[in-house]
Design a binder for these strands. Sequence first.
DNA 1: GTCTATATCCAGATAGAC
DNA 2: GTCTATCTGGATATAGAC
Lengths: 194, 194
Amino acid sequence: MITTEENILQQAGTVFYRKGLAGARMQEIADLAGINKAMLHYYFKTKEQLFDRVFLQAFEHFVENITTVLNGNASLEDKIVSYVNQTVDALAQNPGIPVFVLNELSHNPQRITEIFAGEEKINLKLFREQVDKYSGGKIDYENLFIDMVALCVYPFVVAPVFKQLLHKSDEQYTALLQSRKDHVVREILGRLSV
Amino acid sequence: MITTEENILQQAGTVFYRKGLAGARMQEIADLAGINKAMLHYYFKTKEQLFDRVFLQAFEHFVENITTVLNGNASLEDKIVSYVNQTVDALAQNPGIPVFVLNELSHNPQRITEIFAGEEKINLKLFREQVDKYSGGKIDYENLFIDMVALCVYPFVVAPVFKQLLHKSDEQYTALLQSRKDHVVREILGRLSV
DNA sequence: GTCTATATCCAGATAGAC
DNA sequence: GTCTATCTGGATATAGAC
């Protein structure tokens, strides 16, 4: 059995993802959750507090693969393979999260410093050492990291535009996104083996 | 001398970029433009119509390099070099545009079909032919195109997160974005010469 | 074309019964 | 914990003088 609070959080997510903080209506969230508007305030006091909870969840989804995969003790190759596959799979289930998170951050940039303040686990030190060691200092870990993330995430972010540009149906574009997992792994690993 | 209408459009842009349609306040736009709220309605009737104009401008900025560079009659290598450099330069001047456009499209996906309806100039046929010819059919033009755009644009979109993650100041991150022009060109051109 | 003053609406939040 | 009814502020939009 799901609690009322979890139910609200979930429905609030779908509304906030689609409309943002300012565009969302408490009434719509209440309707989706099958409860009364007053209940939202009973559980979360204000719209902003409800939004904060939703945003934090979304942000954690957004960066979770970076932290869990990169900080493990697997080999560099294994980490890259894991990151790409897990990230694409996660985004396929929640394609709206990246734009939602990035948009809120662009509206509210100081949020990011607050979030990172308590989180020392998000750390690329280990990844850097592995890249340095692996390539004998020849490969810049920053660009490698940026490229890997960009190649995975951007096609989701820009999906509506690329769908039109490449003349793809929803199903065709979904298939393309999946097929890119192998492509991205090949490209990134290819740089290491030169 | 700049007209009142252009002045409004420009100030409306800065507000809408930061806050989105629902979050923006007509009063704030009026204040920035140094005029009265009533004037906004005199020139653009409703907030939505003002927003539509701003959005259309932004969208054109967002895709202009794709159309102008890729449809020219330059060589494939020259097109890639031009696209990367022009895109990064344009984004450096207006870093807020991509998230703004992508967010609005995620809130309002049918907009993209309306926009593309009249625009037959946005066309990757020529680019595809060049890639096919150049690589003897060995390189997938879709992934090449997606990757090139992703590597250029995504670092701007995700700037606040990467700044924290990589421990960069604003100046350092700006420098990194500039330095990536050569990096991206090298990576993409490198695939062609194998 | 530009302003002040105002109408109108709507959404977040609360009061209070059950 | 859950509801109905209501308060209140604020934002878009308009009326009308200059």
